[in-house]
Amino acid sequence: MFEARLNNATTLKKILDAIKDLLNEGTFDCSDSGIQLQAMDNSHVSLVSLTLRSDGFDKFRCDRNLSMGMNLGSMAKILKCANNDDTVTIKAQDNADTVTFMFESQNQEKVSDYEMKLMNLDQEHLGIPETDYSCVVRMPAMEFARICRDLAQFSESVVICCTKEGVKFSASGDVGSANVKLAQTFNVDKEEEAIVIEMQEPVVLTFACRYLNAFTKATPLSNQVQLSMSADVPLVVEYRIAELGHIRYYLAPKIED
């Protein structure tokens, strides 16, 4: 039997909001170490990797490894039925073809359960090599979301240029050209407002805005976002999920033909 409980539905609701527009469906691979989901979007230009550790749940039981193919749009609809402060429990029998979501109100007066059919998804799993990235930028997640949204008005592509001075986001098209330069911060009082750049060597990479803007749907999950870049390999956009895990988005670059 599989059973995972969170005392607060907020995080799970935000996780679904962070992936449901990019992915139509995904397989939740459950083991005693937690829940993993890895899936590419339909165009195979981006990949989502979600990791939720079992010790981040308020109760976690996984007798046998279990893969649950979920329609993420349906799962998001079910989670819309939960209040943020409801306790949420995900339950499935070992060789089940359905999964149950149970929501309990804080005052225990209201208990709801929603049963959803599971899907047979034969999604292939991709190996993501450990990479020592040339540039790693940590910055406020809201700032990154704002830049992606603003620059998408100028072009379908954003050029990210990272040097020891700072990181520059550029876009140019019919409207005109835009450059947003962020310098590394040194004396911020709040860690989450810092802009930290670890640079082995400078990089210049081009990415499609529409995917970056899909990734920033994860902004409510974390104050900070981490961008990892190396020449001619996918960008990694990572949001940590406090005390539970992280969501990593990989975006294939646009390269000179």
Binding site: V45, S46, H125, G127, P253, K254, D257
Partner: peptide, 14 residues
């Protein structure tokens, strides 16, 4: 011109 690459050309199927 810039060409959009695919994830599959960077990560191998396991």
């Amino acid at each position: 011109t810039v060409k959009q690459t695919k994830i599959g050309s960077f990560f191998e199927k396991e």
